[in-house]
Amino acid sequence: MSILLDVQNLKVAFPNRDGDYVEAVRGVSFALGRERLGIVGESGSGKSQTGRAILGLTAPQARVSADRLTFDGIDLLKASPAERRALRGARIGMVLQDPKYSLNPVMNVGNQIVEALQAHRKVGDREAREQALAMLAAVQIDRPARVFDLYPHEVSGGMGQRVMIAMMLIAEPDLLIADEPTSALDVTVQLQVLSILDRLVAERGMGLIFISHDLRLVSSFCDRVLVMYAGRVVEEIAAADLGAAQHAYTRGLLSCLPRLGEHRHPLPVLSRDPEWAR
């Protein structure tokens, strides 16, 4: 499989009040083809910052460094802001967590999709509208023409997230980073949105980085899983082999998952060893 994204020793550090830098991501390495990679970890483990660093959306005061950070042969660290912007949306898309906050409240959803397309393609308004409607249909929205004119507060969470997916896929990127795309949704809607995402990623042969804290979701949905702890990858494992995970942290996460009919007293608690963060 050809390598789409190559990340070697990625570090992201934020300045604190004293001017020292605190590392949120501390040397993450992985390579990605056109496959589905899951990144799991608890809050603050650096999984989201890893995704944002790839897109070039890290806050300006932060420091990003890596031995290698290439996308399809393009050195992202050496690329100019304009070059990185040209990649965003067009070749790398990102789905954010909560459509309530991640859609512009004063612009109707159709125009937000159109805008994503017109940022990268010279497409007339009418043609762009047609494509946006087709994209809305592709994310299984029933009456696209009607939904096109709705504002974000007028759509449900599940529909909002489908709009978000439509917006990020309309320019046909090669890689999609989904940052907790279903965490803000009702459980019943989660599966629906995931299956749409799954189908589109498969149809278009895209690479996918699926960031989540839901281990079970990731293992059923991805080919490979990175387990992150305190800014580092502690284990990389094929999703199918997750049950045979070696690392104590991964096993701890797994044993947190409840099973029907199981009695557990006391509840298992995640153990954390400062050694893992070394």
Binding site: L96, S102, N104, A119, M168, A171
Partner: peptide, 28 residues
């Protein structure tokens, strides 16, 4: 706000993000 991150992720130009997205909301 998060929608600004979305706008950046779409690859919009900085001026469009400032004037069409942020200021349009700040106008209220």
């Amino acid at each position: 706000q998060e929608y600004i991150v979305t706008a950046r992720a779409k690859g919009l130009s900085e001026s469009r993000i400032i004037w069409r997205h942020a200021l349009r909301n700040a106008a209220v």
